[in-house]
Computed example of a mutant assay.
Amino acid sequence: MFTDEMPHRCEAIMVEVGDNFGAVLVEFNGEHDHAHLLVHHPPKVALSVLFNSLKDVSARLLRKEFGPHVRQYLWGGHLWSPSYFAASCGGAPLSIIKEYIETQKRPD
């Protein structure tokens, strides 16, 4: 679904949303149909609330800005799946996690 331009715009949107929660988007990358995020967030912020907002705002703005292209990839009217996977990386060096995310292939 992602064109060359879309991951960059999606990342910018998610940085802004994260800022509103006091969260920092440390790394962002994705493949043609999903995204990987490394997020440092305050413990007082529930992950479900943060990720719902990241998905809601990015979906709304990407649909608005890339409408005709995005519409052909919607699932029942939705851009993102309602699920997400989150894992703590407190024991792993952040450089290893960042490297993993950086090596994900962005669409050509």
Rank of each mutant, 00 (worst) to 15 (best):
S58P: 06
A59V: 09
K105F: 13
E5Y: 01
L74V: 03
V49P: 01
V57Y: 02
I96V: 14
Y84K: 03
Q104A: 11
L79H: 02
H78K: 13
K64L: 14
G76W: 04
I96W: 07
L62C: 12
Q104K: 09
P82Y: 02
S81Q: 00
I97W: 08
A23C: 13
R71E: 15
P7M: 04
I97P: 11
P7D: 11
L37I: 02
L47H: 08
L37K: 07
S88M: 06
V17D: 00
K105C: 13
G76V: 01
K44W: 03
E99Q: 14
L50F: 13
P93G: 10
P7L: 04
A46V: 13
K105W: 10
D19R: 12
G18D: 01
F51W: 07
E11D: 11
W80E: 08
R106D: 01
M6N: 00
H36I: 04
E102S: 15
P107W: 13
F21W: 11
L54Y: 05
L37A: 13
G22A: 00
D56K: 07
R63T: 08
V57G: 01
W75K: 09
R63Q: 14
H8L: 05
E65R: 03
H78W: 11
P42W: 07
H32E: 12
C10T: 03
L47M: 09
K64C: 12
V39H: 10
E5W: 00
A12E: 15
V57I: 10
V17M: 00
W75R: 10
K64S: 14
G91K: 14
Q104G: 01
P93I: 09
K105E: 15
E27W: 05
M14R: 09
E27Y: 07
M1G: 10
E16S: 14
S58N: 03
H8P: 02
L62Q: 02
A12T: 14
Y84Q: 05
S95C: 13
Q104N: 13
I101G: 07
M1E: 07
D108Y: 08
R63N: 14
K105V: 15
G90K: 12
R106G: 00
A86D: 02
N29D: 12
Y100T: 09
C10S: 12
F85A: 07
S53E: 08
P42N: 06
G30V: 01
I96K: 13
P68Q: 12
P7Q: 06
H36K: 03
D4Y: 08
V15E: 08
Q72A: 15
N29H: 10
D108H: 06
V15D: 06
D19L: 10
D4M: 04
L25M: 06
D108A: 11
V49H: 07
R106A: 05
K64Y: 14
Y73E: 04
K98D: 10
K64F: 13
H69R: 02
W75T: 07
S88N: 03
F28A: 07
P42I: 08
V70R: 06
N20G: 15
L74E: 09
R60F: 06
I13F: 11
V24F: 05
I13D: 09
S58D: 05
L79I: 00
P43K: 07
D108F: 09
V24E: 14
P43R: 01
V57C: 12
C10H: 08
I13C: 10
L47G: 13
L47Y: 08
G30S: 11
V17Y: 00
H78P: 10
L47C: 11
P93A: 12
